[in-house]
Design a protein around this nucleic acid. Sequence first.
DNA 1: TTTATGTACTTTGCGATACAAGGTAATAAT
DNA 2: ATTATTACCTTGTATCGCAAAGTACATAAA
Lengths: 112, 112
Amino acid sequence: MEVMNNVENVKTQMRRGVLEYCILSILSKKDSYASSILSELKDARMIVVEGTIYPLLIRQKNQGLLTYRWEESPQGPPRKYYQITDKGRQALAEMDSAWQELVETIRLLREK
Amino acid sequence: MEVMNNVENVKTQMRRGVLEYCILSILSKKDSYASSILSELKDARMIVVEGTIYPLLIRQKNQGLLTYRWEESPQGPPRKYYQITDKGRQALAEMDSAWQELVETIRLLREK
DNA sequence: TTTATGTACTTTGCGATACAAGGTAATAAT
DNA sequence: ATTATTACCTTGTATCGCAAAGTACATAAA
């Protein structure tokens, strides 16, 4: 214990809470595959690693929020392209509400 | 499995990420004890339960973010009043930044 | 006095999940 | 053949929220 700095830990947990939300958001714009989603999240400073994202995509697929298809890659092994489903879009809409509610809650807690 | 609805699960995880932040925020305004903090969070629609908050307060105390003292209650058993430390206030400031950064990240991810 | 009620703190067991680390496999370049 | 790159997957570990049950104190009711 005490290996991880507390604030880093809290940051990790904050990210954790919105990871599924972010992935659905990315896939709502265009189909994509794990490595690409990973890069996009890294660019947005949402630090995630492979061991996190692969199981997460599989879970979301199992929940019916996503489907996938294999596609040849211009170079390298084939890619597993994920596509958001109607159920996924519905879930995304609910997450939008949940997120906004949380942001508002924190705003109130922090200001007064 | 499949006991919990997915969106509920995501809400839970979103809350999880900010719980420590909320508690430090509440204690930054005035000293308080677990049951009272619990009510305050419930009023703010941050659903938390005893089994979550007690260990969390103990963890924060062990990290030096809080101290505590016992105080008699007007009625009922004595209360364990927690007080935020300088280190706690510093952590809170860092969490403010982390939170705002996250809010901005999500805003960008969701809009474009 | 005994019992019930309300308040408050604590602990145990379980399930979920992020991460580190390592593994598998396909393609292209050397 | 070997190496590098890209891509996907799995295992072990630690953390942590929650449900549930337990302990303890004070006061009110039976």
